[in-house]
Amino acid sequence: MRNKVNLAKDKFMTGVFYAVAGFFLLLLFAFAGYVIIKGFGGAKLYMFSFTRSGIGNQFFNTVYLVFLSLVISVPIGIMAGIYMAEYAKEGKITKFLRICIETLSSLPSIVVGLFGYLVFIVATHQQWNLFSGALAVAILSLPLIATTTEDAFRSLPDSYKKGSIGMGATLRQTIITVLLPAAAPRIITGVILAAGRGFGEAAALLYTAGMSTDINWSSWNLASPTCALNPFRPGETLALNIWASRTEALGADATQIANLSSAVLMVMVLAFSLLAHVLEHRIRRNMGEKA
């Protein structure tokens, strides 16, 4: 009798688990599908334009800002990861360093945004600009890049290092010519994930990158405040554009524009996540082959 109850319970719970998993998958597909279909479905051609009425400029700002932030965070993050994997000796300072990185990675992005606002905007008497936004996003992605680099280095077989050192290479030569290339696929996966997160970041940019954008696509003078490539101009990103559309009815089509921005962001994020997954899958498969 008791056994029967147990078996029934087991079956019931298994059903519950399947239901939750199914519900969850459905939710994701529905969510992503809804955002993308509604965004592109309600879009008119002019909304894609690189003018004030389209989101082209915001799209450009998003990509440019993330690019700038990676230019800053990738070298620093990789070097910090190398420090942790190869140079840091276990001890109090390293322990503290780990806690610091954890702190950095769990900081609310709005707090980082405020810090950026204070240091990059208020203290330097600048107006809101892309570069400050990029710095704020760089701070947010540093811990991710540093920890993936460290993990990537730690997961390499010890024999690479031994082999290289045994031939009279210095630690620096070993790191640059053997370890870093071997760890590169994993690090790149981390960088892609960081980029994906950067695209969607908004809270950290509110008070750093600013909420306006004005690009004159015929001006290529870097010092001009309307030149697309000038990093010291304000640059509203797609995510900020969505935030801005929440209350202010800026125009009759504000809702559709925000829908489209959401859809574009969604596609970018999905594409980058997929890319990271494919890469990771490749790495796993390659490791399997070697074993």
């Binding site: 024999s159 690479y160 031994k162 045994g166 009279g168 053997v178 290339p181 071997a182």
Partner: peptide, 12 residues
Amino acid sequence: GMVFQQPNPFPK
């Protein structure tokens, strides 16, 4: 120079 127990060519 040194040769190790497990052959350890670099991934190159």
